[in-house]
Design a protein around this nucleic acid. Structure first.
Length: 434
RNA sequence: CGGGGCGUAGCUCAGCCUGGUAGAGCGCUAGCUUUGGGAGCUAGAUGCCGGAGGUUCGAAUCCUCUCGCCCCGACCA
């Protein structure tokens, strides 16, 4: 993509409305603009990142055996009356009335809808287990939206819902999601740890929240230091026994806020790590709360109806954009992990209009691939180009100027470390294409 | 929802206390000079001073109401 034709409104100064670093950088780097409190428009660069995150989430969900579908944003109030949550949910739910005076709502979550789909379509235990997910916009009318996309009212969320015949099977479904989450966050370039979470009315130990470590996180986290060094499982057989993997991750002390245990923490001594974190995922065993209320049953092996056991599993996709920035930035701007970067390389032409640099850049642009490169071909000063490129945080920069070309070199800069090397055009290509 | 703050040019903000012709920097447009870390000079364009009432000869400025946004707290499967 040529920057001269790309819609990338960057800001030199920080808009007054933004307080935390990810919010500031998202505005300054031209990722998004605020539309109303807690509601944002995603600009091309931000949208590209959002889609890359979404794709990684999708791939790992599919790999774990979940199937993607898409439920509507607008839901009927009747379903929520069935589950009993229409009155319980409170003002956080955005309620709408259509022209026929029917009560609708903008979905804050999808248990009712998915349960309705399930009970309408699934009849036999032979169709279980089943895990369905979608990646869809949600709306929760937070009293006080804040922190940009980290705590918006409208947000993009992946939510999966599992249906099982019994508790053992449900635990396996839970474990599949647990492992998929470990892999997902690792692929996103994040250090995420699972924390046991409050389970609410269901009880048991089947609820974990996944926290990304970042100094600016909302919650205070403490955990065994070894958790931070743990290798994420590769080549997982999702049909096999996942319990050992889950146990290995949950066996070490880790807790946030009200779940902290002073005695357990003290016992760790020097191995205890205290940090701050951002919640980016949450998995729950739901039991029969919705299936019972809404009559989601299948015929069991003995011919008798069985009320299915459910679980739900969320990942805050739009929140992850902010969380990644919180976890990965410096004073110059964003530092995207390669896996989510909107472009792999930023190509800087230091002297647009100079025949030699234009030609060298054109060659690099074509051979690196226009889809993977953001080519700054604007007629701007070098300083402005450097500043913008650092701000938007692409993993690599190739800097092409007349001085270097006279020596037969271009500069290759690693955004994360800031390290710069003078290399030949061919060697830059070899490094970046390979 | 309690408490506090802010709405003036695209952005950051001054002006308001003490009423009297709408301001600066950056950005934008044109030209010249510049050209390896957000350039210099010259000439321009840009405002319902968030909105509505009121006080006054006169309101960005004072009063009332209202809308929006931000911050702290409470809240956040």
């Amino acid at each position: 993509m040529r920057l001269s034709r790309y819609f990338l409104p960057t800001l030199k100064e920080t808009p007054a409305e933004a307080q935390i670093v990810s919010h500031r950088l998202m505005l300054r780097a031209g990722l998004m603009r605020q539309h109303a409190a807690g509601i944002y428009t995603w600009l091309p660069l931000g949208f590209a990142v959002l889609k890359r995150i979404e794709q990684i989430v999708r791939e790992e969900q599919n790999r774990a055996g979940a199937q993607e579908l898409l439920m509507s944003t607008i839901q009927s109030a009747d379903l929520w009356r069935e589950s009993g949550r229409y009155d319980d949910y409170g003002k956080e739910m955005l309620r709408i009335r259509d022209r026929h005076e029917r009560d609708l709502l903008y979905g804050p979550t999808n248990e009712e809808v998915i349960t309705d789909v399930f009970r309408g379509c699934v009849r036999s235990y032979k169709d279980l287990p089943l895990n369905l997910y979608h990646i869809q916009w949600k709306f929760r009318d937070e009293v006080r939206p804040r922190f940009g996309v980290m705590r918006g009212r409208e947000f993009l969320m992946k939510d999966a819902y599992s249906f099982d015949l019994d508790l053992d099977s449900a635990r396996h479904s839970y474990n599949q999601m647990f492992v998929a989450y470990l892999r997902t966050f690792a692929r996103l370039g994040l250090k995420a740890i699972p924390l046991r979470a409050e389970t609410g009315p269901i009880g048991g130990d089947l609820s974990h929240e996944f926290i990304v470590l970042a100094d600016t996180g909302e919650s205070e986290v403490e955990c065994h230091g070894a958790l931070l060094e743990k290798a994420v499982p590769e080549g997982v057989d999702y049909d096999g026994d996942l319990q050992p993997v889950v146990d290995a991750w949950t066996g070490l002390y880790a807790a946030a806020d009200e779940m902290r245990d002073a005695a357990a923490a003290d016992a760790l001594g020097d191995t205890l790590v205290r940090a701050r974190g951002i919640e980016v995922g949450h998995i729950f065993h739901l039991g029969k709360k919705y299936s019972e209320a809404m009559g989601a049953t299948v015929t069991g092996p003995d011919g008798e109806p069985v009320t299915v056991t459910m679980g739900c599993y969320g990942i805050g996709v739009s929140r992850l954009v902010g969380a990644i920035i919180e976890a990965s930035h410096d004073e110059h701007g964003i530092i995207w992990p390669a896996s989510v970067a909107p472009f792999h390389v930023g190509l800087i032409n230091l002297k647009t209009g100079d025949a030699a640099t234009d030609a060298a850049c054109a060659t690099l642009y074509e051979r690196l691939g226009p889809d993977r490169v953001l080519y700054d071909d604007r007629d701007e000063r070098a300083g402005a180009k450097f500043a913008d490129m650092d701000l938007i945080g692409l993993p690599w920069q190739v800097i092409v100027g007349p001085k270097g070309l006279a020596k037969g070199v271009v500069e290759l800069k690693d955004r994360a470390s800031g390290a710069r090397e003078e290399v030949s055009t061919e060697s830059a290509l070899a490094r970046l294409v390979g």
